[in-house]
Design a protein around this nucleic acid. Structure first.
Length: 293
DNA sequence: CCGCGGGCCTGAGAGC
DNA sequence: TGCTCTCAGGCCCGCG
């Protein structure tokens, strides 16, 4: 499911019911998601207060009063659902309405804010871990992460430097979380189209020999920031799995310019091209061969 | 060191 | 109706 805008949407939905609240009860209905959960998962959370909830790339991070951090990743199909239970809890409260009888509701958090939070993940590519705050920086999944695309540090100079010398395609390079953290299959296609750059172009061509940015590099950085901001504003994209934590759908899928639009006319004003789908590194890419160069 | 393809899971939708 | 096949918003690992 989720790329940066969807994870940010989830973060904003969870923050009001998690920040400042305690875990009253934690239930892990299976011992593993993508990886085994820590054996003391439940006890390291119960009774602890969430000091702050944040996002890094596609990861959600909950700082706990114990000094631990709860790390959460949604994989392809993970979603959180919040029920602010004022009424008596019923079995239905724990269920995503799209799943039958709470199938794939793997983790439940009952918070002192009164909210029940359910993590549902059919494909189980999602991930949770609890680690000491001090180990976060050195965590194998964190330390390799590139810059936040919406941060000030992510600019044309920085992007040029990391693309310089890369023989791979721009599609593959931008999908690499080490280059920039948070883009995935949808937003790479969308950003490249906005910047009028071909996904097949070699990554190294977005920098000069010495690693300086070009006009294209600047256009791409602006396009990445713009598409992510627009998508966050729309509450992310809902294709199959993504929902806001209140169950509502995101809206950004209606604003896709190329993603999943093979055969449609290119939306660039004045462009006569037709959107094409191609496969790169085993994943679909959508682009307009006429205006993306 | 780097890039690619396979694999991890389940479900939805198309085609027969 | 039901089977089979393909594809899906992510990412790790092993291979060449």
């Amino acid at each position: 499911m989720p790329e940066l805008p969807e994870v940010e949407t989830v973060c904003r939905g969870l923050a009001p019911v998690m920040e400042g609240a305690r875990f009253l009860r934690v239930e892990a209905r299976r011992p593993d998601l993508r990886f085994p959960l820590p054996k003391d998962f439940k006890t390291r959370l119960e009774g602890k207060t969430v000091v702050a909830l944040g996002r890094r790339g596609k990861y959600l991070l909950a700082d706990l009063s114990s000094g631990d951090v709860l790390l959460m990743h949604l994989g392809m199909s993970g979603s959180f659902r919040v029920r602010s239970a004022r009424k008596e809890a019923t079995p239905g409260d724990f269920h995503h309405e799209r799943s039958k009888d709470g199938a794939h509701d793997h983790i439940l958090f009952a918070m002192s804010s009164g909210a029940t939070i359910t993590f549902n993940d059919p494909r189980r590519f999602g991930y949770m871990d609890v680690i000491p705050r001090a180990e976060l920086e050195g965590h194998p999944l964190m330390k390799a992460l590139g810059p936040e695309p919406l941060g000030n540090a992510f600019d044309a100079a920085m992007l040029a430097k990391s693309l310089c010398g890369k023989k791979t395609s721009l599609k593959a390079a931008l999908s690499d979380q080490k280059v920039v953290a948070g883009l995935g299959n949808i937003y790479v296609s969308e950003a490249l189209h906005r910047a009028k750059i071909s996904p097949r172009r070699k990554a190294s061509t977005l920098a000069t020999q010495s690693g300086a940015p070009t006009e294209r590099t600047r256009a791409l950085v602006e396009a990445i920031k713009a598409v992510l901001r627009d998508a966050i504003k729309a509450g992310g994209s809902s294709l199959r799995d993504h929902r806001r934590t209140d169950g509502e759908l995101g809206d950004f899928q209606h604003a896709f310019r190329v993603y999943d639009r093979a055969g449609e006319p290119c939306p660039t004003p004045g462009c006569k091209g037709k959107i094409r789908r191609l496969v790169q590194a085993g994943r679909s890419t959508f682009f307009c061969p006429a205006c993306q160069r």
